[in-house]
Amino acid sequence: MHASNFDLPTYLQRIGHTGHAGPDTATLHALMRRQLFTVPFENLDVQAGRIVSLVPEDIADKILRQGRGGYCYEVNGLFAMALQALGIAYRFVAARPMFYPARRPRTHMAVIAEVEGRRWLCDLGFGSYGIRAPMDLDAVGVEVAQDCDTFQLTLDERGEYVLKARVEGQWANQYAFDLSPQEWIDFVPANYLNSTHPEAIFVQKLLVVLHHSTGRAILLDDMLKTVTNGQVEKRQLAREEIGEVLASLFGLAPAVAQPGR
Rank of each mutant, 00 (worst) to 15 (best):
K164D: 13
T154A: 09
P134S: 09
V39S: 02
Y129Q: 13
D149W: 04
A255W: 08
G16T: 03
V55D: 13
G49N: 11
P97C: 12
V167N: 11
R65Q: 10
L86D: 02
G87L: 08
L64I: 09
S128Y: 03
L8M: 08
W171M: 08
H20M: 09
R103A: 14
T107C: 02
R106V: 05
E168Y: 11
Q258F: 03
G127L: 01
L12Y: 01
D45K: 03
V93Q: 04
F126N: 00
N191I: 08
F99I: 12
F6W: 07
D7L: 06
I51D: 12
G49D: 12
L86A: 05
E143R: 11
L249H: 03
R91D: 03
L163N: 06
L252I: 15
N76G: 01
S248A: 14
C72L: 07
Y175E: 10
I112C: 06
N191D: 08
R91C: 06
T226D: 11
S213A: 15
R261P: 15
G141M: 02
Q204T: 08
D178V: 12
Q231I: 12
I88F: 03
S53I: 10
S213W: 12
E241F: 04
T38K: 07
V142P: 02
I201H: 05
C122A: 12
N194L: 15
G251W: 00
G243P: 05
P259T: 03
K62Y: 05
V46A: 01
Q231R: 14
G67S: 10
F187S: 06
G159Y: 12
F177N: 03
N5T: 10
V75A: 00
E116N: 10
A30I: 06
K234L: 15
V39M: 07
A217Q: 11
D147Q: 11
D178W: 10
T196L: 07
E143V: 10
N191H: 11
A48V: 08
Q236W: 10
T154M: 04
W120V: 01
L210E: 05
R33P: 02
A133M: 12
L137W: 06
